[in-house]
Nucleic acid binder design. Structure first.
Length: 215
DNA sequence: CCTCGGATCATCT
DNA sequence: GATGATCCGAGGA
């Protein structure tokens, strides 16, 4: 009898615009994920822009592959990828069909379904439930099967109007953890929001078995 | 608060 | 074979 709140998805036209406009415009919006277990929703507080084939940090920099194909398609769909052998991250595709820009959803504040989110996050402090792109996916139950999902129609993954964040509250800086284009300030967040993730620069991993040469 | 190392596998070269 | 749009726990300041 507890029906989930009726919500209206955002228009696809919102996503059919330049990536930086979409990125800043997404702050304050709400992403909801519904499964048989229930609904979890987050208010987005941190995102990063990736500008398709011209952006050295983008998964599309070297053209279309099986993994990134969704990014080249219709705006308003989810691009979900698996990384570090254990984590998922989610982007929302933007720009015209045929181009390959997207916005990585990095962090948010849980606004519905906190109990389910806590269960999925297994003891994490509330502040950290969706503080980071892989944590956000874990809290929402987003995984591979949602790659390509349309977030502009009612369904298991939907983007909602929410309350857009006024421009004076939006801050920007370098993207987190990327190994190139470090000078491009395309990470955007809500000033002062506790759910914004800490910045970490890219760190090349240790090379196993590549011991220092004898001399 | 910070820094550091390990986990673990899909993807690309 | 190497790397990665990350996270977590341990240990130090």
């Amino acid at each position: 009898m507890t029906e989930s709140t009726t919500r209206t998805p955002m228009d696809r036209e919102f996503f059919d615009r330049p990536v930086l406009e979409v990125a800043t415009g997404l702050l304050g919006r709400v992403l909801s994920r519904t499964t048989p277990e229930g609904t979890v929703a987050v208010r987005l507080t941190e995102v990063e822009a990736y500008a398709g084939e011209l952006d050295p940090a983008s998964h599309c920099y070297r053209g279309m592959t099986a993994r990134n194909a969704v990014m080249f398609g219709e705006p308003g769909h989810a691009y979900v990828y698996f990384t570090y052998g254990m984590h998922f991250c989610v982007n929302l595709v933007c720009g015209p069909d045929g181009t390959a820009s997207a916005v990585l959803l990095r962090a948010g504040e849980i606004v519905e379904g906190a109990e389910l989110a806590r269960a999925r996050r297994n003891g994490s402090p509330d502040r950290d439930l969706a503080r980071g792109p892989a944590r956000l996916c874990q809290a929402l139950g987003i995984a591979r099967e949602l790659n390509g999902a349309d977030v502009c129609v009612p369904g298991e993954l939907m983007i909602h109007e929410g309350a857009p964040v006024p421009a004076p509250l939006v801050r920007s800086g370098p993207r987190t953890g990327v190994s190139s284009a470090h000078d491009t300030p395309w990470r955007f967040w809500v000033e002062g929001d506790p759910s914004v993730s800490p910045y970490r620069r890219h760190v090349p991993r240790n090379r196993r078995g590549q011991a220092a040469p004898g001399a």
